[in-house]
């Protein structure tokens, strides 16, 4: 095969751009999940949040004709699903793993039902035009770097800001300090006067915002249409990326970029006939992003042997008396 078509100078910028596009929805969801897990909540409902965000943003943008209304609607629906997760996991303190899986089932059924009820069986399904790319003056003209970093659509810039914001909140604010405290030592945080349940509620809502935004990026910026299960398991990959990034928002985003670029690369190798010529089965290409992610996780955890996992992850916090606070 022709490697220049995959990794040559002319092919590199499209490869990175495709990697960024593939990384964005998953990465946003994963960054929100990272904050949520830092507060001690294992939010497995993420796929449901992404999917609801996708449907919400589609409906908002389609009916209003305004991309930003779509984004708001997507974030809104994502937050609503996260609130259900919080109600079950934080208020009722039912098992977090099961809550998450059930909500994914619920969101899958509800989004399908809603879409079908609204648009019926048709050969002309609704769609709208996706956001155009917005070239930042001067910076966008820098050869190479400019085309990758400063010639994207507006949502990509917003997403980058959102990731930065989560990082800032987690490490530079009082709320972030409480989040980390609650995730490590909820009893100590409680003793210090932190309302554990309220912090966890808020962390889940942040996860809803980011997941909803991820769904909106997928629809408003990339596809302009909706189909059943359009998120195709990205929420599950995002959960893996949180652990990949060792619960640090920036590393999590880095993991999402690695996953996205690997996916973009395997598509290009397949297209260049890499599989046909070498006899390597294409299933191996399809599995490549997952295998690379596992390999990097193994390497990274073997390198840094400290245990970054929040100590109370997955455990509901119940005071000794078993009462719940609000």
């Amino acid at each position: 095969m022709d490697w220049a078509a995959v990794l040559g100078a002319g092919a590199l910028i499209p490869l990175l751009n495709a990697g960024i596009r593939l990384a964005m929805p998953t990465g946003l969801a994963a960054v929100g999940e990272a904050l949520c897990q830092r507060a001690g909540v294992l939010n497995l409902s993420l796929e449901g949040i992404l999917l609801s965000g996708a449907l919400g943003s589609f409906l908002g943008a389609y009916y209003s004709g305004q991309a930003w209304i779509g984004v708001i609607a997507g974030v809104g629906l994502g937050v609503a699903v996260a609130a259900l997760m919080a109600l079950l996991s934080v208020t009722f303190k039912t098992e977090q793993v099961i809550n998450g899986i059930v909500i994914v089932l619920l969101a899958g059924g509800a989004t399908s039902l809603a879409y079908e009820k609204l648009f019926g069986v048709t050969t002309t399904p609704p769609r709208f035009d996706t956001l155009p790319s917005l070239k930042i003056p001067l910076l966008g003209s820098i050869p190479g770097v400019g085309a990758v970093l400063f010639d994207q659509n507006a949502l990509v810039y917003i997403s980058i800001l959102a990731v930065g914001a989560v990082w800032w909140v987690l490490y530079r604010t009082r709320f972030g300090l409480s989040v980390r405290a609650v995730g490590e030592r909820p009893d100590a945080a409680d003793a210090a006067g932190v309302n554990v349940d309220r912090i966890r509620w808020c962390a889940l809502l942040v996860s809803g915002v980011m997941g909803g935004l991820g769904g909106a990026v997928l629809i408003v910026a990339q596809l302009g249409l909706f189909r059943d299960n359009i998120t195709a398991g990205r929420g599950w990959v995002a959960i893996a990326l949180v652990i990949f990034g060792r619960w640090s928002p920036l590393r999590v985003m880095g993991g999402a970029l690695l996953f996205g670029i690997t996916d973009a690369l395997q598509l290009r190798i397949q297209a260049a006939g890499g599989g046909v010529e070498t006899g390597v089965p294409f299933e191996l290409f399809q599995a490549l992003p997952y295998i690379v992610t596992i390999a990097v996780v193994v390497a990274a955890t073997a390198w840094a042997r400290d245990d970054a996992q929040p100590k109370s992850l997955g455990f509901p916090y119940e005071k000794e008396a078993g009462t719940r606070e609000d």
């Binding site: 078509a5 092919a11 499209p14 495709a18 596009r21 593939l22 929805p25 997928l218 990339q222 596809l223 249409l225 189909r227 059943d228 299960n229 359009i230 195709a232 398991g233 996916d263 973009a264 598509l267 290009r268 397949q270 297209a271 260049a272 006939g273 294409f282 299933e283 399809q286 599995a287």
Partner: peptide, 27 residues
């Protein structure tokens, strides 16, 4: 012919990227 097998029937975004990759290579 450049053919790409996606590994999913439902992943619309990944399919779109596969087509863009094919287009980069002349399709």
């Amino acid at each position: 012919l450049i053919s790409t097998y996606i590994g999913s029937w439902v992943d619309v975004a990944l399919t779109k990227e596969a087509v863009l990759a094919q287009a980069e290579q002349g399709a």
